[in-house]
Amino acid sequence: MRFAEFHPGQVIEAGPYVLSEEELVRFAKDYDPQWFHTDAEAAAGSAFGGLIASGWHTCAIAMRLVVAAALEGSESFASPGIERVRWPSPVRPGDALRLVADVIEVRRSGKRPTLGILLWRWRLFNQRDQMVLDAEVTSLFRLEAAAN
């Protein structure tokens, strides 16, 4: 989507993305090697009752879905960050994750008119409609100079 296509109140949906146990463990071994992400036997005896995905993996899946649904081919070039991120429910092997992205604000920078700023809320839900990610994200877009 192009920057001009975003508007406050807009809802963008994507998915599902099915997370395999193999992918969950591989990501965790590389980037978040805590036992409850990497050791199925130990995780079975945990409070979670089994393996759970790293929250950072959950964020990466959301990013993949956002790119596929909205950012691919756009003027997006960076993000100054995430205002908040929460993982209210764990992601488990076999979960089918669905993105719901709500556009909150769309504006041109007052100081840099060739900079578009998009504030949006990304939520991921599993196949049971449990929210597994809730994040408020800012995306930046490189735009042409505004007409005078």
Results as ranks from 00 to 15, higher is better:
F6Y: 03
G9R: 03
G9M: 13
V11G: 05
V11N: 08
V11H: 14
V11T: 13
P16E: 12
L19H: 04
E22Y: 11
E23I: 15
R26H: 11
A28M: 09
D30G: 13
Y31D: 12
T38A: 07
T38C: 11
T38D: 10
E41L: 10
E41P: 04
A43L: 05
S46M: 07
A47D: 15
A47I: 14
A53V: 10
S54W: 03
S54F: 02
G55A: 01
G55D: 03
W56D: 02
W56A: 06
H57Q: 15
H57E: 02
H57R: 09
C59N: 07
A62K: 03
L65Q: 03
V66M: 06
A69R: 06
E75T: 05
A78H: 04
G81S: 07
I82F: 09
I82T: 10
R86L: 08
W87S: 12
S89H: 15
S89E: 13
P90F: 01
P90N: 02
P90K: 04
A96G: 01
A101F: 09
A101Y: 06
A101C: 14
I104M: 12
G110C: 08
G110H: 10
K111A: 15
K111P: 10
R112P: 05
P113F: 02
T114H: 10
L115N: 12
L115T: 07
I117K: 01
I117A: 06
L118N: 03
L119E: 14
R123E: 11
D129R: 13
Q130G: 11
L133N: 01
L133R: 00
D134Y: 00
A135M: 12
L143P: 12
L143W: 03
E144W: 01
N148I: 06
